[in-house]
Amino acid sequence: MNILHIDSAITGDASVSRQLTAKIVAKLTADQPDAAVTYRDLAKGVPAIDNDWFHAVRLSPENPTAEQQALIDISNAYLNEVQAADVLVIGLPIYNFTLTAQLKNWFDQIARAGLSFRYTAEGPEGLLKGKRAIIAYTAAGTPFGSELDFASGYLRHILGFLGITDVEFVPADGLAFDRDAGLARADEALDRIAA
């Protein structure tokens, strides 16, 4: 089993989402000690897609410049990690009711027509099928699944668009109001996660 472990919280060791993703990965590897883990800390920065990215990555020039090749290589590295993974463990801290900018940038980097999805006569088809995603949702005040939560539905949708429909959440919400209760809910959800 190949696990891709992704964190995006900017709060370092104080991050609850980082603590939860580490617990999820520990549970998966305890049950499957031969599992390989690739770790990616998006808080270190993920380039936003822009006009240069579009001309390099999306338009795929036959003879890219050195600058274009660097943009292609970055995007390919992110996508290759996802393609190689059987399980994605993603930390989803909620900032201003939604996902972090770094995590959104990462999805923009890996959503590549012809590689991670394609358009067909029947509509779009995800090409990253057969994978599982476990999401550590953490929020100080945004209840998981509420009308204020613009992140979990987006993650389920974008992962499904890419072909990943086996999506589970380990939510720790309401941390600003009752931290212990929020962490207890996350531990209960974690206990239900099968390896």
Rank of each mutant, 00 (worst) to 15 (best):
G130H: 03
L183W: 04
S15M: 00
G45T: 08
T38S: 14
A14Y: 10
G91P: 01
Q32R: 06
G12Y: 06
A70L: 05
A136F: 06
T138E: 11
N105E: 10
T38D: 14
A30S: 11
D7P: 03
I10Q: 05
Y119K: 00
P93R: 00
E168R: 13
D108M: 03
N63R: 09
L28A: 09
V89Q: 04
A22Y: 01
G126S: 06
A189W: 09
L175Q: 12
T98L: 01
Y137S: 00
A172K: 13
P143A: 13
A14V: 01
L148S: 15
K104C: 08
R192Q: 15
S8T: 08
G141M: 02
R112F: 07
A139M: 04
G12W: 00
E147F: 07
A121N: 11
G45R: 07
N76T: 13
L88R: 00
G182P: 12
N51Q: 13
A139G: 08
L183C: 10
L183H: 07
D7A: 12
D173F: 02
V57N: 10
L159M: 06
A186G: 08
G130F: 01
A85P: 11
A140T: 08
E188P: 06
G174R: 11
A101D: 10
E122F: 03
A14S: 11
W53I: 03
P61Q: 06
Y154K: 01
E147G: 13
L59Y: 14
P33C: 07
G141S: 14
E67N: 06
R112D: 08
D7K: 10
K104H: 04
F54G: 04
